[in-house]
Structures are given as C-alpha cells and as structure tokens.
Amino acid sequence: MRPLAAAIETKQLTKTYKSRIHGKINVVDSLDLHVEEGEIFGFLGPNGAGKTTTIKMLLSIIYPDAGEGYVLGKEIGDMSVHRLISYVPERPYYYEHMTGLELLKFYASLFGINDQALFVRLLEKVNLHRDMSKTISQYSKGMQQRVGLAQALLNDPKLMFLDEPTGGLDPIAHREIRDLILSFREEGRTVFISSHELSEVELICDRVAIINKGVIARQGKLTDLLRGGRVEVTFEGVTEQWLKDKGMRDSHVRTIAGGVLLDTTEEEDINALIDAARSNSGRIVSIVPRRKRLEDLFIQTVTDAPAAAAKKTITVEESTSV
C-alpha cells in the first residue's frame, strides 16, 4: 500500500551487513519513517547510527535487505523520482578543476537542463555569484557546501536530502546554511536533514526522528517530543502548607527568600492553582517554564535505552499532540 501525501515513508526497512567478527549486523533495523511533505525533518543520531545508510537506501545507492520504502509516493529504486529529489552528501567533494558555474552546468546536464539564467540565479541565491568563475579548488568549505546546495536546487526538487549540511563549518557559515534551508521550506520543499548537531536541528526542524544503532528511538513533532518540561512558580502571600495541601502530583514546594516556590510538571493545571492562590490573596512573583531541550532528549534516548535490545519504537503518536 502506497501512502499518499508522505514525502518519505518506510516500513520495516532493514539493511544488514555481514561482518567477519560479529556476523550479521543490522545497520538499519526495521525502520518505520514518515516524513510529511513540506516539512523540515531532522534525522538524528550519533555517528554510525545508520543515518547515511538510510539516506543511501532512499536514494537507491544501496539496496535494502528487507522492508519497503517510498519516496514521493514511488517505491525506492524507481529512477523517475530522481528528477524530483536532490542530495547533498556529507562533506561533499566536487570536481576541483571546474568553476562554480561549470559545476552547475555539469549537474544540470544530467537532467538535460541548460539554462544559464537559472545557474546565475541559483548562485546568487547561495551568495556565490561573485565567485562563480573561481574553481572549486579555490572555494572554502562553506562555499563548497553552498555550491552543493545550489546544485541540489537545479531540478527544483520537491524533496532534498542534506547529509550533515553544517558539518565542519564555522558559526557564520552555519547561519548562512541554516537560512538557506529555512528558505527551502518557504519554497514548499521537503527537506530531510541528517545531523548530529542538535542545536541546528532544534532551530529549524519541524519534526525529528532519533535513530540509534539502526533503530528509531523517537519520532515526532519537536514540540511534542520536548513536552513534559517543568514550571517553577513563585508565590507570595500563601504558605508552603497551603500549596502542599493542593496535592499536586510530582511537585516540590519550598520556602525561599521572598516567597514560596512550586516546582511542578507542565501537565498540571497551573492556571487553576494560580487562580486559587489569587483568590486566597496570594500574589504571583514569577512563572518560569523549564523546557526540555533536544540535547537532553537525545542523550536520554541514546544512553537510556539499549536500543538494539528494546527493538521497540517509541513513537509519539500524532493523536497525542495537542
């Protein structure tokens, strides 16, 4: 069954390598991935988690051993989909003897495109138009990454695979790339980013999947995944006991200088408590939400669950989102 409206859909996608020492190793194990059209999807995982292997399978550069995969509704291996997608590999290398313009011309010719105006427009978009006559060997890493993005736009792709797009770049280059990626979403493209740089992903991704040892550990909307943070509310004019009597789950109450501090989970009905406090001539000094950060989630996911043993995908279902 071919699901519609999904940019990427995999079902039990598995890639096995044979190792002399360890026998068969599932580099990607029963992967179920779902990427909506038009979103920026972060594919996260530590080095060697199977990120690049998954992308290569989706691009039919390598072949899965089991499971199914669909890219833009077409079964993987269908070359026609390659007209609609693009790929920027990790730390890419381009033919060094070519100029930026020549490089675009070369890649465009693989689509049968020859549109000088398009090449210049794309180079302008990635801010390389002043350097388009320089050879790639003269480009900095950031420039190479940008020319890579430009070539990835040649066919006006619906879906872009970017493997570690900011790997090894300085903060300014980071920002340039990030802005470009955000612009891709505005242009209506689906962007599939594989990365281990969580701060980047947190800033731009709509949804993420965390893969560890070939298994998806978490997948869902970033907002949902990061839910379950805590809130600290400082009261004046109520007693510690009054607050304790409210009987909130998983809460701590202690008196501090200038009031009483309640530390509780987001899920509790804080508004009702605040209303109750006010009506009890109490006053709210501050409300500080302590949100969960992606990094925490990531470290928790990677270190907590021995993923290979669990083999169970913990997915935050769409229905649970607010």
Binding site: S80, Y87, F111
Partner: peptide, 8 residues
C-alpha cells in the same frame, strides 16, 4: 553519490 542521486 551526487551523480547517482540525479536521474543517471
């Protein structure tokens, strides 16, 4: 990879 991800 860049080349094979194109319709080649």
């Amino acid at each position: 990879y860049t080349i094979l991800s194109k319709p080649v």
